[in-house]
Simulated assay, not measured.
Amino acid sequence: MNRENIQELGNEELYCIGCGAQIQTENKNERGYTPPSALKKGQETGELYCQRCFRLRHYNQLEKVSATDDEFLAMLSQIGEQDVLVVNVVDIFDMYGSMIPGLHRFVGSNPVLMIGNKVDVLPRSIKHSRVKHWMLQQAHQAGLRPFDVALVSGKKATQIDELLELIEQHRNGRDVYVVGVTNVGKSTIMNQIIRAATGNKEDIITTSRFPGTTLDLIRIPLDDGAALIDTPGIIHRHQMAHVLTANDLNIVSPQKEMKPVTFQLNPEQTLFMGAVARFDFVEGNRSSFTCYFANELKIHRTKLEKATDFYEKHKGGLLQPPNEKDINDFPPLVRKEFNVKEPSDIVFSGLGWVAVQNPGKVAAWVPEGVDVVIRQQII
């Protein structure tokens, strides 16, 4: 696999090597548009990007294009009709929001390797074996039966060489389809794989925090004639990424190793994680609650009886993100109650979790449509 054959996609049409869209020079408002001058330059250099990817890569500007959920699912449905290896990338911090609904129906009898991204930001005290076990449990509940789970960091290239060896061990000369919902770091991992295989130090595939960056299949030829295929991210509406701006996502999504913060709470006390989530200790004995969230996400404590008024008064101000400008477009927080009987984690999808040590009643509030669940403690 090398830079030259990345552009050769098996037919005469030209495709953007950043998002996979077929290149066209006629309609500025359609996917794959490239000015004729940029097309000529891209053909000469072997680095052909559509105008959308060029602006996103160089100016962080995202241009909306017409790409529907149905189109993405139609591409995914091709997988079950072939004999391939499926690599399913999920976000360790958003396992519930990053599972593809009904994936087991799309992959058919093909083997599935599950990849948990962002292992680099987990506290070092967490045993990776426990994380893998928990991921397998969630996959089985969703009807998926991965033969193995691997933990990697697309950002820091942690365990990428080991991932390559695992893929090579199980693909048996077959094509490899890399699938995942939007914003899990799938294309970032693909770029790390390309780097490891070619020695190229630049990103080839366009990446961003905007959902839906990859628009079509991107085929990376392998030495034996098979291909590594990056697929468009399936849009999952229950992700935190769909209710926050890109700047706010940088604050709430852990970017480096999390440093847990422990609060001693009496019953009828509340914690606010910015304005994006809330945790109530409703009933029980005074106890310790350890919060595992992004270090930049500020946590505020108040009394439960005053919590709703406190939120309305300070959201967008003291409680950020979102900021005052974006708070009016932010969905309302909805409540889910849990009766905790053993040490458990209350998981806020896409954010982190609160570790509850002792029995009691707690409630978690998240933006409408975002998941919150209870699980056995992983620390």
Rank of each mutant, 00 (worst) to 15 (best):
L62D: 15
Y49F: 12
D70L: 07
V65A: 08
Q43A: 06
H58E: 05
G42Q: 04
F54G: 11
A67H: 08
A67T: 12
C50M: 03
R57T: 03
T45L: 05
E63N: 14
D70A: 10
E47N: 13
R52K: 12
C53A: 13
L39K: 10
E71V: 11
L56G: 02
K41L: 07
T45H: 03
L62H: 09
S66A: 15
L56P: 01
E44H: 08
Y59S: 03
G42V: 01
F54T: 06
E47Y: 03
L56K: 02
Y49P: 04
A67P: 13
G42P: 00
T68Q: 01
A67R: 05
T45I: 04
Q43L: 10
A67F: 15
E44C: 00
L56C: 08
E47V: 00
D69L: 08
R57Q: 05
E47K: 05
K40N: 13
E63R: 07
D70P: 00
K41Q: 05
D70S: 10
E71W: 09
T68M: 04
A67W: 12
F54K: 15
L56Q: 09
L48H: 00
D70I: 12
G46R: 00
F54I: 11
Q61T: 11
L56E: 07
K41I: 10
F54V: 09
Q61V: 14
V65E: 12
G46L: 01
K40A: 10
A67L: 15
E71Q: 08
L62K: 13
C53H: 10
L39Y: 12
D70Q: 04
E71L: 06
E71R: 02
R55D: 15
Y59C: 04
E44Y: 02
K40V: 03
Q43K: 10
R52D: 07
L39A: 03
R57P: 06
D70F: 04
E44A: 02
G46Y: 00
K41T: 11
Q51E: 15
G46N: 03
E44G: 04
G46S: 02
E63D: 12
S66D: 11
C50D: 14
Q61H: 11
E47W: 06
A67Y: 12
Y59L: 04
Q43Y: 05
S66E: 15
Q61Y: 12
E63H: 14
G46F: 06
N60L: 03
L48M: 02
R57N: 03
L39R: 08
G46T: 07
H58L: 03
E47F: 08
G46P: 02
Y59M: 02
F54M: 05
D70M: 11
K40G: 04
L56V: 07
R55V: 09
C53N: 04
G42C: 02
C53F: 06
K41W: 08
E71D: 02
K64D: 04
R52E: 01
N60M: 01
T68A: 07
V65L: 12
A67C: 07
E71Y: 12
Q61R: 14
H58D: 01
Q43H: 01
K41A: 14
K64G: 00
D70V: 14
Q43T: 01
E71I: 10
N60E: 15
E63Y: 09
R52N: 08
A38H: 13
Q61K: 13
A67Q: 11
Y59G: 00
Q61W: 10
Q43R: 06
K40I: 05
K41G: 09
Q51G: 09
L62M: 14
R57Y: 02
Q43S: 05
N60S: 06
E63V: 09
L62R: 09
